[in-house]
Amino acid sequence: MNRWSNCKNILCIRPDNMGDLIMSAPAIRALKETFDANITVLTSSAAQGIAKHIAEVDDVIVYDLPWVKTAGVPDRERFNELTDTLAKKNFDAAIIFTVYSQNPLPAAMLAYLAGVPRILAYCRENPYHLLTDWVPDKEPYQHIKHQVQRDLDLVAVVGATTVNTALGVKVDERLRTGVLAKMLQRGIYINRPWLILHAGVSEKKRMYPNRLWIEAAKQLITNNGYQVLFTGSAAEKELTDILEQQTGPGSFSVAGMFGLDEFIWLVKQSPVLISVNTGTVHIAAAVGTPVVVLYAQTNPQHTPWQVPCKVLQFPVPAHLRSSNEVIAYVNKTLYHVPTGVPGAGDIINAVRELLNRPPGSPSPPSREIPSESQALPAS
């Protein structure tokens, strides 16, 4: 008998950014469907907003863990309180979702101290008593899976499966009137074609040059007849204002105008979304919006999942590359051949190709990342 079959109160630890939690959603769905369990997600303040849009999540605990990159300084006293909180919830099991470059053992120790009896994770080293269910981590040295597939394969070890491996976030159609009213107030013609261009990044190394964003936006407006909405958070308004000012008529800086609920609705309505590789790309994939992604060569396993897309890669400057040795290995093996920065024309061609796809055309393979990263050379 599966030792996990009676797990009805499950903790999923995914303490990273919004996009990471979205990519873990199919695996969370597998746990929910297989065990008919109550699912609690422990996540960060950066990702808490999206958690309520994932149908399979029942409860959310928010805490910025000290081994995850955060804007603020972690509070030690609150960390002790977190351990107590988890202990009081009497979880039957915990699953730790990680990127292959992350160490799961700090999260495993947290679950262990909280008395969780079953703990599942990938781990490169022998965790001994910290994990009851240990999956030796072979990424990225033997292969690289898409992050969604990595998470699905992890929970499959304990018998959790689902036939629905698509991303999914809930879209509130009741927001339509309010969002359209904001667009009209901003001067956007809602009955004329428009699309989203999302230039903001969480890390400087993912930045695509402003001059190329501007050139692409001008072409979309002048040659293709689109209005361009420069979206972003309130903190990115300075960037979107600059992009609007330098692009000119037909472009609109709307950073900070929409709450997350409204933004999800807006993304669903866009005929195509143009973005850097950030959480917005995964929202688009979750609502079925085709994506053109200017993809900094950082995490090759985070391309759009099961949605029509064009991935335009560009290199990360040497001085901005991660000092994490696992990521450095990927840089030396996967990204060792120099590549140029895609131009505005490449973006326009990608948009045109997606918009002209025949109805019903298949989406990219679900389990694979771009072909050049399927087999890494031996170190």
Rank of each mutant, 00 (worst) to 15 (best):
R3P: 14
L11I: 12
L21W: 08
L21G: 03
S45I: 01
A47N: 01
I54F: 04
A55E: 13
D58H: 13
T70G: 08
F79M: 15
D84R: 13
L86Q: 04
F91D: 04
I96K: 14
F97N: 05
F97E: 02
F97L: 15
N103R: 03
L105R: 06
P117G: 01
A121L: 03
N126W: 02
H129E: 14
T132W: 05
Q142S: 09
H146D: 08
T165A: 08
D172G: 01
T177E: 14
K182M: 07
Q185L: 06
G187L: 09
L195S: 03
K205Q: 10
K205T: 07
Y208L: 08
Y208R: 05
A216S: 15
K218F: 04
T222N: 11
Q227H: 09
T240S: 15
Q245P: 00
Q246T: 09
P249D: 11
L260C: 04
D261C: 04
I264C: 02
N277A: 12
T280H: 01
T280S: 12
V281Y: 03
I283V: 15
L294Q: 05
T298M: 06
Q306I: 02
V307C: 09
V307Q: 08
V307E: 10
V316Y: 07
H319F: 11
R321V: 08
S323V: 04
S323L: 07
V326K: 08
I327Y: 00
K332G: 05
H336E: 10
G340L: 07
V341T: 15
D346T: 03
V351D: 02
R352D: 05
P358K: 09
P358F: 00
S363V: 14
P365H: 00
P365N: 01
S366W: 07
S373C: 13
Q374I: 06
P377L: 15
A378E: 14
